[in-house]
Design a binder for these strands. Structure first.
Length: 111
DNA sequence: AGGATGACGTGCA
DNA sequence: TTGCACGCCATCC
């Protein structure tokens, strides 16, 4: 893996760790916060590497722009993402975060 | 080396 | 409002 990419992934991880409990953010928001607005997909790609617990990344708090749990199948157990969110008080229905707009944490305006 | 793929987002019908 | 096509760019095959 290229050094710059590794850096990018590290930045994604660091930002993701700042997401407050009970709040969620999106791949696009993280991409913009890191200055790569057009690379939202890379954030998703980066999150795949977050499965390792040494990174301590709350990957479950990152959803797509519609508040959908698109990455749930990348967890050890597909239901884990929803359970983790519900454990933080977030309501999930049909793979979608309820009151997403209120729970959304914008790294640009709230950091 | 080159094409397909994807934890995305936006625009348009 | 819902669905689909297209742009992005690192990774995978």
């Amino acid at each position: 893996m290229k050094p710059e990419t590794y850096n990018f992934i590290m930045q994604v991880f660091e930002l993701a760790r700042l997401i407050p409990e009970g709040r969620v953010t999106t791949y696009g928001a993280i991409a913009r916060a890191l200055g790569s607005a057009k690379s939202a997909r890379l954030v998703g790609t980066a999150m795949i590497h977050s499965h390792d617990p040494i990174y301590k990344v709350p990957a479950h708090r990152v959803v797509n722009g519609s508040g959908l749990l698109t990455g749930k199948f990348h967890f050890a157990d597909p239901d884990q993402m929803q359970r983790l969110l519900e454990a933080e008080g977030i309501i999930i229905k049909d793979n979608q975060v309820q009151s997403f707009k209120q729970l959304f944490w914008n790294p640009l305006t709230e950091l």
